[in-house]
Design a protein around this nucleic acid. Structure first.
Length: 215
DNA sequence: ACCCAGGTGTTTC
DNA sequence: GAAACACATGGG
């Protein structure tokens, strides 16, 4: 029996919980999380988001106006703090300058132009752009992270070898269903975190975790 | 002490 | 063009 994407999705939904992924945060907060989580554990991101919230800085104007050294100190627990602080402040300033500080405005256009605009900003690459489109904008895109590429490859579900190919493949197979696309991405990451625990996903289809597999 | 994490940008062959 | 490197803290 071979596994298709909808089947894998329902199997993973039985195994893992995905409710912790951006639990109805504001779109702007999703953006902050998307920057902060780059190459960083989510627990460390929460530390930063919590302290920003505590300081009352979790809004566009505050972060557009904050002085850099202060923001750097707040971002420090999430690593790469100088880069991330600068990029976050730049995003806040850009949003205020070009979209009246409203994420709804940034996310208003068609998918392709939104994506292009996000990708033009410093610190936003494919994964961050698609995370924002999906989790802040509710747009039906798949975040084809390296985890997804590797895991779907190992399962024999996809032979895509680059980000764009896998993204389009999955979007074509699951259809424009933002919830399904988001769950699949989140669940594949949960699966990857749950390393070194071989797990039968279906008859004759054992997913060995990536004990020695590098991302 | 070493390896990795919900990547991106720059430099180098 | 791809590969290699820089960015950096925190937890296993």
């Amino acid at each position: 029996m071979t596994l298709d994407l909808p089947t894998l999705l329902s199997l993973l939904r039985e195994e893992y919980d995905v409710n912790s992924w951006w639990p109805r945060s504001s779109p702007f907060e999703v953006v902050l999380g998307a920057f902060l989580t780059q190459q960083t554990r989510w627990e460390n991101v929460l530390t930063v988001l919590d302290s920003l919230r505590e300081e009352g800085l979790l809004d566009v104007d505050s972060l557009a106006e904050i002085d850099l050294p202060t923001l750097e100190e707040l971002v420090r627990p999430a690593g790469f703090y100088r880069q991330k602080a600068g990029r976050i402040r730049h995003f806040a300033r850009y949003l205020r300058q070009n979209h009246d500080g409203e994420m709804e405005s940034l996310l208003a256009g068609d998918l392709a132009s939104c994506r292009e605009e996000l990708l033009s900003l410093p610190g936003i690459g494919p994964e961050t752009a698609d995370s924002i489109l999906l989790f802040a904008g509710g747009k039906p895109v798949f975040v084809a992270a390296s985890y997804c590429l590797r895991t779907l490859g190992r399962l024999g579900i996809s032979d895509a070898d680059d980000y764009e190919t896998l993204r389009q493949e999955v979007e074509a197979e699951l259809g424009p269903d933002a919830e399904a696309l988001g769950d699949l991405y989140a669940l594949l990451v949960e699966l990857a975190k749950d390393r070194c625990r071989p797990r039968p996903l279906c008859d004759g289809c054992l997913l060995e975790q990536r004990c020695q597999i590098r991302t």
